[in-house]
Amino acid sequence: GPREVTMKKGDILTLLNSTNKDWWKVEVNDRQGFVPAAYVKKLDSGTGKELVLALYDYQ
């Protein structure tokens, strides 16, 4: 199956793709996968990378 990404509340993840309104593709610890968009919030990183903050645990 697809590689699952797990996250804990407060984690910072790299946002790869947010074109789908329900599932965003993120990368964390060299793993890529989809997380519910409602579970993360975009951060203003000030760099080229888009980052998101995990609002809830997800696994």
Rank of each mutant, 00 (worst) to 15 (best):
G1M: 11
G1R: 13
G1Y: 12
G1L: 12
G1N: 13
G1E: 12
P2M: 15
P2I: 12
P2Q: 13
P2N: 15
P2H: 13
P2L: 14
P2S: 14
P2R: 13
R3N: 14
R3F: 15
R3V: 12
R3P: 11
R3Y: 15
R3S: 14
R3Q: 14
E4L: 14
E4K: 13
E4D: 13
E4Q: 12
E4G: 15
V5H: 05
V5N: 02
V5E: 02
V5T: 06
V5Q: 04
V5S: 03
T6R: 10
T6V: 15
T6D: 10
T6L: 11
T6K: 10
T6G: 08
M7P: 01
M7C: 04
M7Y: 04
K8W: 07
K8N: 07
K8H: 07
K9F: 05
G10K: 00
G10R: 01
D11A: 05
D11R: 01
D11M: 11
D11K: 01
D11F: 04
D11I: 03
D11V: 04
I12G: 00
I12S: 02
I12K: 05
I12L: 07
I12A: 02
I12T: 06
I12F: 05
I12Y: 05
I12C: 04
I12V: 11
L13K: 00
L13N: 01
L13G: 07
L13P: 01
L13H: 03
L13V: 06
L13S: 01
T14C: 08
T14D: 04
T14L: 14
T14G: 05
T14E: 07
T14A: 08
T14K: 11
T14Y: 10
T14Q: 08
T14V: 15
L15N: 00
L15F: 02
L15C: 04
L15G: 00
L15D: 00
L15Y: 02
L16Y: 03
L16S: 02
L16K: 04
L16W: 02
L16Q: 03
L16T: 04
L16I: 14
N17H: 06
N17E: 14
N17V: 07
N17I: 07
N17Y: 05
N17W: 06
N17L: 07
S18D: 14
S18C: 10
S18H: 08
S18M: 09
S18W: 08
S18R: 08
S18T: 09
T19N: 11
T19I: 08
T19G: 08
T19S: 14
T19D: 15
T19C: 11
N20L: 07
N20D: 13
N20Q: 08
N20Y: 07
N20V: 04
N20G: 10
K21V: 09
K21R: 11
K21Y: 06
K21A: 10
K21I: 08
K21W: 05
K21T: 09
D22T: 12
D22R: 13
D22S: 10
D22C: 14
D22A: 08
D22L: 13
D22M: 12
D22I: 13
D22W: 15
W23E: 02
W23P: 00
W23H: 03
W23C: 08
W23L: 04
W23T: 02
W23Q: 02
W23G: 00
W24D: 00
W24H: 01
W24K: 00
W24T: 02
K25H: 11
K25N: 06
K25R: 09
K25E: 14
K25Q: 14
V26S: 01
V26C: 03
V26D: 00
V26P: 00
V26E: 00
V26K: 00
E27Q: 12
E27W: 08
E27H: 05
E27P: 00
E27I: 10
E27R: 07
E27A: 10
E27S: 09
E27Y: 06
E27M: 11
E27D: 05
V28Y: 12
V28Q: 11
V28K: 14
V28L: 15
V28I: 15
V28H: 13
V28P: 01
N29G: 15
N29E: 11
N29C: 07
N29V: 05
N29T: 05
N29P: 03
N29S: 08
N29K: 07
N29A: 10
D30L: 07
D30R: 07
D30S: 09
D30F: 08
D30Q: 08
D30E: 10
D30G: 15
D30P: 02
D30K: 07
D30M: 08
R31E: 09
R31T: 14
R31S: 12
R31Q: 14
R31L: 13
Q32G: 05
Q32Y: 11
Q32T: 13
Q32D: 06
Q32H: 10
G33I: 15
G33Q: 06
G33E: 08
G33T: 09
G33S: 07
F34Y: 15
F34M: 08
F34P: 02
F34N: 03
F34T: 04
F34L: 07
F34R: 03
V35C: 03
V35E: 01
V35P: 01
V35M: 02
V35I: 08
V35D: 02
V35A: 01
P36A: 04
P36E: 02
P36H: 04
P36W: 04
P36C: 06
A37Q: 04
A37E: 03
A37H: 03
A37M: 04
A38P: 06
A38C: 12
A38T: 11
A38M: 11
A38W: 10
A38Q: 10
A38S: 14
A38H: 12
Y39I: 07
Y39M: 11
Y39H: 06
Y39R: 04
Y39K: 05
Y39P: 01
Y39G: 04
Y39E: 02
V40I: 06
V40D: 02
V40W: 02
V40S: 00
K41V: 15
K41D: 07
K41G: 05
K41H: 09
K41F: 09
K41P: 02
K42L: 12
K42I: 12
K42D: 04
K42R: 11
K42Y: 07
K42C: 06
L43P: 01
L43Q: 04
L43M: 09
L43H: 03
D44S: 11
D44I: 11
D44E: 14
D44K: 11
S45A: 10
S45H: 09
G46S: 13
G46E: 13
T47M: 12
T47A: 12
T47F: 12
T47Q: 13
T47H: 13
T47N: 15
T47P: 13
T47E: 14
T47V: 13
T47Y: 11
G48D: 13
G48I: 08
G48S: 09
G48T: 09
G48P: 08
G48L: 08
G48E: 12
K49R: 12
K49D: 09
K49E: 11
K49H: 10
K49C: 08
K49V: 14
E50F: 10
E50I: 14
E50T: 14
E50L: 11
E50V: 13
L51D: 03
L51P: 00
L51C: 08
L51K: 09
V52Y: 09
V52S: 01
V52W: 05
V52R: 00
V52D: 00
V52Q: 00
V52C: 10
V52P: 00
V52N: 01
L53I: 15
L53C: 06
L53E: 12
L53N: 02
L53Y: 08
L53F: 06
L53G: 02
L53W: 05
A54T: 03
A54Q: 01
A54I: 05
A54E: 01
A54N: 00
A54R: 00
A54L: 06
A54C: 10
A54H: 00
L55A: 02
L55Q: 04
L55V: 06
L55W: 02
L55K: 04
L55E: 03
L55D: 01
L55T: 04
L55R: 03
L55N: 02
Y56I: 10
Y56Q: 14
Y56W: 08
Y56G: 04
Y56D: 07
D57Y: 05
D57P: 06
D57N: 08
D57Q: 04
Y58K: 01
Y58T: 02
Y58D: 01
Y58C: 00
Y58M: 02
Y58L: 03
Y58S: 01
Y58R: 01
Q59F: 11
Q59H: 13
Q59L: 09
Q59S: 15
Q59A: 13
Q59N: 14
Q59G: 12
Q59E: 14
Q59D: 13
Q59P: 15
